[in-house]
Amino acid sequence: MFEVIRSNERGGAHFGWLKSKHTFSFGDYYNPKQMGFSALRVINDDQVAAGAGFHTHSHKNMEIISYVLSGKIAHKDSAGNEEVLPAGEFQLMSAGKGISHSEFNASQTDDLKFLQIWIQPNQFDGAPGYQQKDFGEAVGLTEVITADGRNGTLQMKQDASLSQLILLPEQLISLPVTTNRAYYLHLIHGELTLQGQTLQAGDGIKLAALAELTAAAGAEHVKALWFDLPGV
């Protein structure tokens, strides 16, 4: 199966200091057909004005991933972590039994753009955790977050993984799929064709029950996120 979610079909929010596009139902945006996919619950495409941000708020039992597209995030949480997350880095905060945090645009002059991603865990009420790392810009599929933290990846509390996909113009790639797993691809930059569908930046696609899958980049380089998820 596959289902495309076009960028212009996403929900949205505009609070002056924040412009956001929601792939799945979130906040005041409710779409009963888009409540998440497998363990993937949230993909928000956020643009935060200079000096603004999310004041201290709390989460529980959620794996919260931030990926900075441009700018820097100033992070502070109740576990004592106070970090700056620059463009290109991935952050994973495991909320566990409960954590409070704030996320602000570290710049007083430029906008911050980042993806906020939530994955439902399969372990509950544990100690909160914080991880952060830059995985570079290697061409191909690079694992970023896994269930066991293999090969220097960040470790999440779910039978899932997140990889960064980078392709050169016109490049083909065979993506790893099995029939008993679900997959989601979110396109950040470029044009990508798979399952007979051509995706543009901001588009996403739900995939499941596939024995093989090939993706082809268009005339520009491609950057995307690839989620390997429990079957649906």
Rank of each mutant, 00 (worst) to 15 (best):
L112R: 06
K60I: 13
G80T: 08
R41C: 10
G27D: 00
Q34E: 07
Y183S: 04
L167N: 07
T193I: 15
G53N: 11
F104K: 15
H59E: 01
K72F: 04
A224L: 02
V48Q: 10
H189R: 12
Q116I: 10
N8G: 01
G11R: 03
A79C: 00
H57K: 11
S102G: 14
L185S: 13
A52Q: 15
M93F: 08
Q164P: 04
S25Y: 00
S58I: 05
Q171N: 06
Q47K: 09
R10E: 01
G136K: 12
G12D: 07
M35N: 02
L168H: 04
G149N: 12
T153R: 04
M35K: 01
T56Q: 14
Q171P: 02
M35Q: 02
R150Q: 08
S58L: 07
I117P: 13
G36S: 02
W226Y: 12
I205Y: 09
K113G: 13
Q123G: 13
A219N: 11
T179H: 12
E191F: 09
K157P: 06
W17Y: 10
D159A: 10
A74M: 10
Q131F: 05
A209C: 11
H186F: 11
L175W: 02
A106R: 12
T214A: 14
F37M: 07
E137I: 01
G190W: 13
E220M: 02
N8E: 06
D134A: 15
E170A: 15
S100V: 06
A95H: 05
Q116P: 04
D45C: 09
K97G: 02
A211V: 05
Q197D: 14
K21P: 03
Q34A: 09
P176W: 08
A224E: 13
E3Y: 10
M35I: 04
A95M: 01
K19E: 13
W118F: 13
L185P: 06
H186R: 15
L165I: 06
H189N: 14
V232H: 09
F114E: 01
T214H: 15
M62C: 11
F2I: 06
G80R: 09
K133C: 07
